[in-house]
């Protein structure tokens, strides 16, 4: 981030913005800079493509995950059982 408002950003910053866009946390200005970067950077284009694909997959209904609280409950129940043995 040496040039604060430059249009040209290095790859690591582009990737960082790309990660943020996956969670809808990038600002408009950041997205503009990312897209300008993508025009000329093939590697980052590939990364962005894969990254969005991953997001799409993860958000398809198939992937479920236990909430932290639910896990804690399970853990304590299991611990009880272990000590009970």
């Amino acid at each position: 981030m040496s040039k604060k408002n430059g249009l040209i950003i290095p790859c690591d910053e582009a990737n960082h913005t790309c990660d943020k866009t996956q969670y809808r946390e990038a600002s408009l200005w950041e997205k503009i800079k990312l897209n300008i970067h993508l025009i000329y950077c093939r590697a980052c284009r590939k990364y962005t493509k894969n990254n969005s694909k991953l997001t799409k997959l993860v958000h398809s209904e198939a992937v479920e995950c236990l909430k932290t609280s639910e896990k804690k409950k399970m853990k304590s129940a299991l611990d009880n059982e272990i000590t009970g043995q």
Binding site: A62, E64, L66, M74
Partner: peptide, 19 residues
């Protein structure tokens, strides 16, 4: 090691079950 079960497998098994 049952102590690691929850962190290691709970999500995998849960996902297996929920479908």
């Amino acid at each position: 090691n049952p102590n690691d079960w929850i962190t290691k497998y709970a999500d995998y098994l849960f996902n297996y079950t929920i479908t």
